[in-house]
């Protein structure tokens, strides 16, 4: 397998980042996952973490080096994550179960398989156009499907954030499975949370991700998103892969591409920020941060008291 992959999450203008994302690959399979913990509760980020971690752990156990039955794997792993969140709720006696959206994609033999619950999206982009994307499990998407409102109207609809399927809720999630989708070299598969897709119509996103150097294109896109988002901007997250397979584009970005051919059969590489390690992902202040915050306030007081 050969591909270029980039993932990044930004808090937007929110104090907390409740998005979680990860990717991992073996010699013959790649998995990407993204989860958006549901607001209204700071445990949302724990739900998202449980989901993402659950899926990566399942991948690590079962990709040797391929996943035997991709759809059944995705479905099972997501349901398990759902139950793990409920267990957490139970164990901590929370009144309100934290919830999270989740979209996960597996690629092996240059075929994409994905599953989702909620309104985090997956796009397959080919030649600067959206080849296919997930349909959100949201009330507005239903309204769009019924022709009641247009995509453009949906962007401002008061219910645009209401999802009817997610992991961790009281109801069993509706996990929607994709079709088997053969990928061509140059295809981009992008998973992102609503903080990002909410800012771009499909075609703009597709055009932006068309350019070759993903390692530059995606951070640029996030910079732009940061700039155009409002004062209350949601967390923005994306993991995108440019599927290159055996086609080597001379020059451009070749150095950042991943070749898995030489990986040992049992090896798995994972990129997942551990809970609490990434400063952006903190729910809690550490002792250090408390000290720093106090020092900062004190020195500001000093500075302005003259």
């Amino acid at each position: 397998m050969k591909f270029t992959i980039y993932q990044e999450s930004r808090p937007g203008k929110r104090p907390n980042n409740e998005d979680r994302l990860a990717h991992c690959y073996s010699r013959d399979a790649l998995m990407m996952v993204i989860a958006d913990g549901m607001g209204g509760h700071y445990y949302g980020e724990i739900a998202a973490q449980i989901a993402v971690q659950g899926l990566t752990e399942a991948f690590q156990r079962e990709a040797n080096p391929k996943i035997h039955d991709p759809f059944s794997f995705l479905n099972r792993a997501m349901l398990n994550a759902h139950r793990a969140i409920l267990d957490f709720t139970e164990a901590h006696k929370l009144d309100d179960s934290p919830r999270t959206t989740c979209v996960a994609c597996l690629i092996q033999d240059s075929i994409g398989y994905w599953a989702h619950a909620g309104d985090s999206r997956l796009y397959v982009i080919r030649g600067g156009k959206v080849l296919t994307r997930t349909r959100d499990h949201s009330r507005v998407q239903l309204l769009i499907d019924q022709g009641v409102i247009s995509e453009a109207q949906a962007a401002f609809h008061p219910d645009r954030n209401k999802v009817y399927s997610c992991l961790g809720g009281r109801q069993e999630p509706e996990i929607e499975l994709s079709r088997k989708t053969p990928l061509e070299a140059g295809d981009v598969v992008a998973l992102c949370t609503d903080g990002l897709w909410g800012l771009y119509p499909d075609d703009l996103l597709a055009t932006a991700l068309k350019r070759e150097n993903l390692m530059k294109v995606v951070p640029d896109l996030l910079d732009q998103a940061d700039a155009r988002s409002g004062p209350n901007a949601d967390n923005l997250s994306i993991v995108a892969v440019r599927w290159e397979d055996s086609y080597v584009e001379p020059g451009s970005g070749a150095s950042s591409a991943v070749h898995t051919r030489t990986m040992p059969l049992g090896a798995i590489t994972t990129k997942l920020d551990e809970f609490g390690r990434n400063p952006k992902y903190k729910t809690e202040l550490t002792e250090d941060e408390i000290e720093r915050a106090i020092q900062e306030i004190r020195s500001t007081i000093q500075k302005f008291s003259k």
Partner: peptide, 27 residues
């Protein structure tokens, strides 16, 4: 987490030095 919010209050006030805004002296 709430402490973080309390710090925000401190941060906001520390920057302001105005006769009609309460002065923060220490933290």
């Amino acid at each position: 987490y709430g402490m973080k919010c309390f710090f925000e209050e401190g941060r906001a006030l520390a920057k302001l030095s105005h006769p009609n805004v309460i002065r923060v002296l220490n933290f």
